[in-house]
Design a protein around this nucleic acid. Structure first.
Lengths: 196, 196
DNA sequence: AATAGAAGCGGACCATGGTCCGTTTAGGCG
DNA sequence: CGCCTAAACGGACCATGGTCCGCTTCTATT
């Protein structure tokens, strides 16, 4: 092993034109999703709008789900930022319980807002596993602050699960449960899990 | 209102050939799914195997997801039966808490077993809303027996959510969490929700 | 600056889900 | 029993996601 090798060097540092295209595609996709709605955006349309060939789309984003996942990630990242460093009670500065409740409500709204995109992005794995487990991490941290003991990974998962789109979709669209009730239900769950 | 009208009469009592075909399709689909795996079953294949035209598939089952949902329902129904009238602790006869835990474990295994089919069946709505809310109903009932008070619909949803495939998939396939740990986590959740 | 080889490109092509509509058939009725 | 209508049928057809491979473009090297 040579001492000059930088560690964790990207095996293939992405060529300039490739980067340009990736950006163009993402921008085009975002634009089209905004204007026409997720359902009316075909891969061919995106390719045309970005001024690249269809093959390029698939090479960079693997599949339609992958592309939608990437688009989704844009907002997801912004959201993460506001959790990490935004104003309280969602961001730091408020007591843990308040933060936790704010977190749940915020996540709820966010998911509902991006419902279509989430559906189009399909199962996880498209969104980087890291991005997905961010929420879990954060909840775990807050539970720790609250002095909860036990298998925090599992508890965080349990708290997050009812906020998943599959569940929300069912509640909102077939059972017609109000947002307020869902929020209240989640708050109740939190209190039971934390143990007062 | 004439007194001769039977109540809740099916507006269109399904023609004989239609019924025959529906059964043939379902049987063919089940057979193919069993032998080739969900991923390798195309609508055309099913149509051929059932000896009907493709159009017929789509008329009776709406979409691929619909068909897969119908196939899934077969096993789902069997499972429901064993919950309602099978041997304890899953079926009646055991104390509520035992039943609830058994229920969770059973649901966990069942979902994992049918993972592919569930994915192929897509979002709910394909499976009748009734079938889907059966689990919720049952959990609500058991919570009642356990003397839990509060918004039971929400609590049941909270308990069921971590057993959804989206969540399980993530845990099993990307986080590589063992089945035992997931079960233990769920048991813990139940105890916290019920409040000892 | 020229060159070589890798990386990227793009559009023709394929597979499959989903639609449509002219034809066939069940089954109630005179 | 033969007719009539609504329902069901089926396969040609379309749209779109995804693959493939010959051609182009980048960039490291001399």
């Amino acid at each position: 092993m040579t001492h000059l090798l930088p560690l964790a060097d990207d095996p293939a540092p992405e060529r300039a034109d490739a980067a340009r295209n990736r950006e163009a595609i993402l921008a085009a996709a975002l634009r089209l999703v905004r204007t026409r709605g997720v359902g009316c955006v075909t891969m061919e349309t995106v390719a045309a709008e970005a001024g690249v060939g269809k093959g390029t789309l698939f090479r960079r984003f693997e599949s339609r789900e992958g592309l939608m996942g990437a688009v989704l990630n844009e907002s997801e990242t912004a959201w993460q930022a506001s959790v990490i460093s935004g104003p309280p009670p969602l961001g730091p500065g408020a007591p843990p319980m308040e933060r936790l409740l704010a977190f749940g409500h915020s996540r709820l709204r966010t998911n509902l807002t991006h419902a279509e995109l989430i559906a189009a992005a399909g199962r996880p794995g498209a969104r980087s596993a890291a991005a997905l487990s961010f929420a879990n991490m954060h909840v775990r941290y807050l539970l720790g602050e609250l002095g909860v003991t036990g298998d925090l990974l599992m508890l965080a998962t349990a708290l997050l699960a009812p906020l998943e789109m599959v569940v929300l979709d069912q509640q909102v669209n077939t059972e017609h449960i109000s947002l307020e009730r869902i929020e209240a239900g989640w708050d109740d769950l939190v209190h039971r899990v934390v143990g007062r």
